[in-house]
Each structure stands twice: as C-alpha cells, then as structure tokens.
Design a protein around this nucleic acid. Structure first.
Lengths: 257, 257
DNA sequence: GCAATAGTGTCTGTAAGACAGTATATT
DNA sequence: AATATACTGTCTTACAGACACTATTGC
C-alpha cells in the first residue's frame, strides 16, 4: 500500500490526468434525514469532499462512478454532472505533506509535484440510502462519514460551497427527473416517498397534491398489497414503473413541488 | 509568431493546464438568424468549436472569457457554463501535425506532446450580435466564421453534439434567465425581442401572450418614444431595466415560452 | 383607401395550492 | 372506544394558450 501511494505521488501522471479531477457530492437519505459523505485526511481536522483523479483510460463519468464506488461500495448509482469548478481545490505542500507523510514518510513532495497543481474539478452528485453504506476510506486512512446536510463541519477549500451548489442542482432537478429508486425499498408507500421529497426539498408538501401529481406522472404503480405498520391503517404499496422511470430520466418530465 | 507557436508546442504546460480546457459555443443572432462561430484549421476541411487552454494564473471562467474575446473582440459577454466533456476532443499526431507544420515546419510533435493528450473540456456558451463581430482566428491562420445553426458543416470530434447540448441548455435557460441585452439595440421594440425569442427557440410564440409575460417580469421598461419604420405603424420603444435584469440573471425567474 | 405592421382584451382549460372529512388498523 | 395514521375530493385562483379586432403609418 505504501508503495502504491509512493508510486502515485511520483508517477501519478502516468495513470491519471494532471489538471483535471472529479469531485463527488454523495447524498445519503434514511428515515427523514439527508446527509452527505465527507472524508477527513488523517493529518487534518478539516473535511473534504471525495475527489477522484481521472485515469487516462476512462471517461469522466467512469472516473466519478469508480471513485464513488470506492467510498460506498455501490455500483450503478444515478450520477448527475452538475457543475465544474476551477481554482477551488489547490493543495500546497504545507497542507498535503503531513497527510502523505503518515503513509510514507520517505516520499518527498517537492513543490512541482503534480498533486500540488491547479486542478479543475468536474462535480457530480449522486443519491443513495445511507444506512446501506459503510463509508470507506481508501489509500489515506482518513475518517469517512456521513454528515447531516444542515450541520456540515468545517471544510477545506471551498467545498462547503460546492455542496450547496450540488444541493441547489438536486432541488431543481427533482422537478425534472424522478428520484427514489435507489432510496426506497422495492415496494414502498406513498407516505414514504412523500417524506423523501419533503426531506430533500426541506419543506412541507401537501400530501394530497403531492400524491395526485406523482401518480399522474406514471412512474409508480399501485399494488394490490398493503404494508402492515402496526396500530394504524395499512398504507398501500407501490412499485416504480421501471420503463416509465427510465424514460423520464432520459427525457425529463415537468413537475413542480 | 512562429516562435510563439513553437514555444507553446514545446513548453505549453509552463503556461497552461495540461489536461483541461474550455470549449466555447458562441451563438450569434442577427435579423432572425441564429448562428454559431466555428473555425477551421488550415490543414483540414473539418470544423471545430473554439477551444481554449487554461492559463495557470486564471480561473476557468477567465479562460472562457479570454478565448471568446480572442475570437470576437468582445469583452464582458454573458457566459454560461453548461456541461463538461471528457474524451470528445483528443488530437492525434496524424490530425494535428499537418496543421502545425503550416506554421512551423520544424517543430516536431512527438506522440507524448501535451497537445495530443486527453483533454477535459468545460463547455461555456455565450450570445452576441453577430453582425458586430468580425470573426478572428488566432495563432493558426484558420478560417473562422459564422454558421447557421441548422446548417452546421462537418465537424471534428464530437463537436456537433456539443453544439446541440449547448443549444438544448440555452433553450432551457431562456425560461429562467433574461436574454437580449447583448443582442438588441439599447432601445428596442416588442416585435424585435419577440422575434429573437422565436429564433432561439425555433418556434412560433403567440405575440400577445409573449408580450404579456415579458412585461410582467419587469425586465423591460416602455419608453415614451416610437421607432419610425416607414410605411407602417410605429412600434413603441423599450429599454431593459438593468437592475431587474441583473437580479433575474442572478436569482433566476420563471417563465415558460 | 390600401397595405403592412403594431397593439390590445377575453375566453377557456388546466393545474397548482388550500383545505377537511372519512377510512383503517391496533390496543 | 380511542388513537394514530392513511386516503380521498372540492374549491379557488392563476396562468398558459387560443383567438380577432382595432390602431397607426406612409403611400
């Protein structure tokens, strides 16, 4: 592992692009909470969005997908490119050396090292069920954990702003693309999906109006089953109409919540 | 000039990022026509979108602005980042050498040259009045001219697709941001701006409904003057309410045309 | 008066948003 | 019966979209 790190430090540009990276805003949802996956390198007390270097043999989408999989162990999440950033993330020796030295105290990081260069970052966000994810650090044995969206810790660089840009995009996109397939059980109820939308948008949505609109889109199908939730009326179960769902992902739809 | 080219070929990475660039879709409008500015390097018969390398000392926005100014001589155009692209633009020796050799027949382009590398491109579009622009090639004495949006010539790489992505974004954005300040005379008429919107959206818009909606946004102000257009009724003149216009640019607005 | 363009008002349908009462499940 | 949650329908209002007539200007 230490060798691998050293190889990346010394010869990274053999494998990766030099001045371009992806930056991933991984949103997690579970029981009325929206969180975001952040990591903290060992040598610092500030947090970072997961950044991924782009391999010379892959597309930017693949880079985002690969680096998100490294953190979440999940494949095939819905990825959305939302914005690209310029000078937000530029390391300097002072910041990066202590982090790297915990791993490989011999590796020298001179000021021309590729890791200290100006990186353009292409931002992607994705959504997943955070209770299914064991956040996973890679390479650098950093902390990696979920943070509530309205309680973000102190961040390095301008990453707090990048999170808020991602969230802004998500809240707009939710009017144009269906969400939920990665966030809800296969069979779910209207109150569950209603709650999901309220959480993401961070405001109350009239349940009756919400249900009407959602059903009208044709992306969900009512089953002839109910869920038993104990001492209350049993809610109807629904599944996503996968074909319609995929069509709407591709073509978009118009809803206003 | 030849020296400058050679310096860029040999030592470009001293000045520019290695694997990141901006790509500019410059839309031009004039009298019911929407065009896009393309260039053709001297050694080829295919066309290209203007690509700009990013200086180490500038932001990506500044790179887009600078490279657009190089083509149009116009400063401070409204720039909109619409999408980033991965492997769309990768030169190879076979493609690039004949172009460069017209300029500097001595410069060798070995296969590891930075110009042949994998470039990520951050796409920006902008809008201008094309009759005011003398398209201007730089460095490589290519042809540089306006092409009608529905008559795009054969393009290198995947640039035709990038144009259509930009156009798609423009047509969506037009519902959320005002346009026109760079495209119309300072004092303009409702029929003029109506025409502009019809051209960009490529469909008919009911004049009465259009006028009502536009006026309601508060971005235009009716003057107590008319334009003399000869043997017809004189249309009222309007100006943009610059403060409102800027606010809507920043905050967005909701219109559906 | 004629030709060409500019400007204005009304109707209809749809959909968003507000709102309250009934139904179901368990204890 | 009591409690907690799920489900459903109507009214109002706003706006999009369709549509036709009047006004001005120069000839």
């Amino acid at each position: 592992m230490a060798i691998e790190i050293r190889e990346i430090i010394l010869n990274g540009p053999n494998y990766f692009l030099r001045n371009a990276s992806v930056i991933n805003v991984i949103f997690g949802y579970h029981e009325k909470l929206l969180k975001v996956l952040l990591q903290r390198p060992d040598g610092t007390d500030k947090w970072l969005l997961p950044i991924g270097y782009i391999k010379r043999i892959e597309t930017i989408e693949e880079a985002a997908s690969r680096t998100i999989e490294a953190r979440t162990k999940l494949k095939n999440l819905y990825l959305k490119q939302f914005k690209s950033f310029g000078k937000q993330t530029i390391w300097n020796e002072h910041l990066l050396s202590p982090i790297l030295n915990r791993w490989d105290s011999d590796s020298k990081l001179d000021s021309t090292n590729w890791l200290l260069d100006y990186f353009v970052s292409i931002g992607y966000y994705t959504l997943t069920e955070f209770s299914k994810v064991e956040p996973s650090g890679e390479y650098l044995n950093e902390e990696c954990k979920w943070w509530k969206i309205n309680n973000i810790p102190e961040m390095m660089f301008d990453h707090r702003n990048i999170i808020s840009e991602a969230l802004k995009s998500l809240r707009i996109d939710i009017n144009h693309f269906p969400i939920g397939i990665e966030l809800l059980p296969q069979k779910f109820t209207l109150p569950e999906i209603h709650c999901l939308y309220e959480t993401i948008l961070d405001r109350k949505l009239d349940y009756r109006n919400f249900s009407k609109k959602l059903i009208k889109t044709g992306i969900i199908i009512k089953l002839d089953e109910k869920r038993n939730i104990g001492a209350h009326r049993s809610p109807d179960l629904y599944i996503f109409n996968k074909e319609n769902y995929q069509n709407k992902l591709d073509e978009g739809l118009v809803m206003t919540f």
